[in-house]
Design a protein around this nucleic acid. Structure first.
Length: 219
DNA sequence: TCTGTCAAATAGGAAC
DNA sequence: GTTCCTATTTGACAGA
């Protein structure tokens, strides 16, 4: 998806719509325009003419043409390719670059600006989705780790309830539980304090997409 | 025809 | 005042 196949027609700012809706009627530059479909293979205007046709609805009516529904611009493959190319080089454009690119693509600078805005938004959305997937995986492994540790806690609790009888090699009498030596991991759990699952908290993930210092293979 | 998706475009607010 | 971001709207298009 994403490629809608034939893009033989584009729309250019042509005339006002009678719909009166906000959308598609007025851009933020204050230019009133709506989209008129035209064959992209035919030049919308002369090669050296960079102004966009801005016929009014009055003109349309005068000419006896029915006011068409505003058509949305569909960028041609070549236009998209060039935009993608410049986006790869730079995710933002300075006014000069914007103007030059608009000129090259025969679009209005505002359209180039909007395309870059939307492209940045799409990039960010994709990144957010990937981060979401990563966090889901983290959650899964941490849940599993939590379960494992809880089982371990239960086992340790069970051991405390029934301490093993170990005889002293010297006196051959049972040793007190407090004299047992434990492995480094278990040393955090003393005989006097209750066992807490948080004592053996798992280490954070080796890397994270949110940690810029570590390159992430996922991206 | 209906529905879902994509992307162009708008609106409004934040940051500078 | 300009630029950018974010949320939203809306038209085009494809597939069921």
């Amino acid at each position: 998806m994403g490629d809608h196949g034939l893009e033989l027609t584009i729309a250019v700012p042509g005339f006002s719509s009678s719909s009166g809706s906000e959308g598609g009627g007025c851009n933020t530059n204050g230019n009133n325009y709506n989209m008129r479909e035209l064959d992209i293979n035919q030049p919308a205007f002369g090669e050296d003419e960079m102004e966009f046709p801005m016929g009014s609805i009055e003109e349309e009516i005068e000419e006896g043409r029915e006011a068409q529904r505003p058509k949305k611009l569909r960028l041609s493959k070549e236009q998209s390719r060039l935009l993608e190319e410049s986006f790869r080089q730079n995710h933002t454009l300075n006014p000069k670059q914007k103007e030059a690119l608009a000129m090259k693509l025969k679009l209005r600078p505002r359209q180039v600006e909007v395309w870059f805005q939307n492209r940045r938004a799409r990039t960010k959305l994709k990144q957010t989705e990937m981060e979401c997937e990563y966090l889901k995986r983290c959650f899964g492994s941490l849940t599993e780790e939590n379960r494992r540790l809880q089982r371990e806690v239960e086992e340790l609790r069970a051991l405390r309830m029934a301490p093993p009888t170990v005889l002293s090699p010297h006196t051959h009498q049972p040793l007190p539980a407090s004299s047992f030596t434990m492995c480094p991991r278990c040393e955090r759990v003393t005989a006097a304090t209750p066992v807490r699952a948080s004592a053996a908290r798992p280490q954070p993930p080796a890397f994270s997409p949110f940690n810029p210092r570590r390159p992430s293979a996922a991206f």
